[in-house]
Computed example of a mutant assay.
Amino acid sequence: MAKISVWDRRTWGLLREIKGITYAQLAEACSVYHATPEKWFNDNSGQRNPGLKHQITLAKVLGIPLRSLLSEITDPAIRAAIRAAYND
């Protein structure tokens, strides 16, 4: 079985659908233009990705635990930055 990455747009999309969260709700939570999250989720070219700040906000809104976010990160500085941003 393939490992599912919590940083993967398909994982975000599935969680969004399961939880019934709209793109408009994500846009409001991230303080971005209303069409931006839909572009993040549906861009198959990989050129439209949210920055780390928005990824952490998405994780919070989608209910992804901090432990899951940190599971794939080995750099201590990045782990600390994610932990601090998640707990804001």
Rank of each mutant, 00 (worst) to 15 (best):
M1F: 11
M1K: 09
M1S: 10
M1H: 09
K3M: 08
K3C: 07
K3Q: 09
S5L: 05
S5K: 06
S5Y: 02
W7N: 07
R9Q: 09
R9D: 06
R10M: 13
W12M: 01
L14S: 10
L14T: 09
L15S: 05
R16S: 02
R16L: 02
R16Y: 03
R16V: 02
E17P: 06
K19T: 05
I21T: 01
I21R: 03
I21M: 01
I21Y: 01
T22Y: 04
T22K: 04
T22R: 02
Y23G: 11
Q25H: 07
Q25I: 04
L26P: 07
L26F: 05
L26S: 07
L26K: 07
A27T: 03
A27Y: 03
E28Q: 12
A29W: 03
C30D: 08
C30F: 09
C30H: 08
S31Y: 09
V32F: 06
V32A: 03
H34G: 11
H34L: 13
H34A: 13
A35R: 14
A35F: 12
T36V: 07
T36G: 02
T36W: 05
T36H: 06
P37H: 04
P37E: 01
P37T: 03
E38L: 13
E38V: 11
K39R: 13
W40L: 07
W40M: 06
F41E: 15
F41I: 12
D43L: 04
D43R: 04
N44K: 15
G46F: 00
G46A: 02
G46R: 04
G46P: 02
R48L: 14
P50H: 00
P50E: 01
G51F: 06
G51W: 09
L52G: 04
L52Q: 03
K53W: 09
K53E: 15
H54W: 13
H54E: 14
H54C: 15
Q55Y: 09
Q55H: 09
I56F: 01
I56V: 08
T57H: 09
L58S: 04
L58I: 05
A59W: 03
A59R: 04
A59I: 02
V61C: 08
V61F: 08
V61N: 07
L62I: 03
L62M: 02
G63Y: 01
G63L: 02
G63C: 00
I64M: 00
P65A: 04
P65Q: 05
L66G: 06
L66M: 07
R67T: 14
R67N: 13
R67P: 12
S68T: 14
L70S: 01
S71R: 09
S71K: 10
E72Y: 00
I73Q: 01
T74G: 11
D75N: 11
D75F: 06
P76H: 00
A77M: 14
A77V: 14
A77F: 12
R79P: 08
A80L: 07
A80R: 10
A81K: 12
A81Q: 14
I82C: 01
A84Y: 11
A84M: 11
A85T: 15
A85F: 12
Y86W: 02
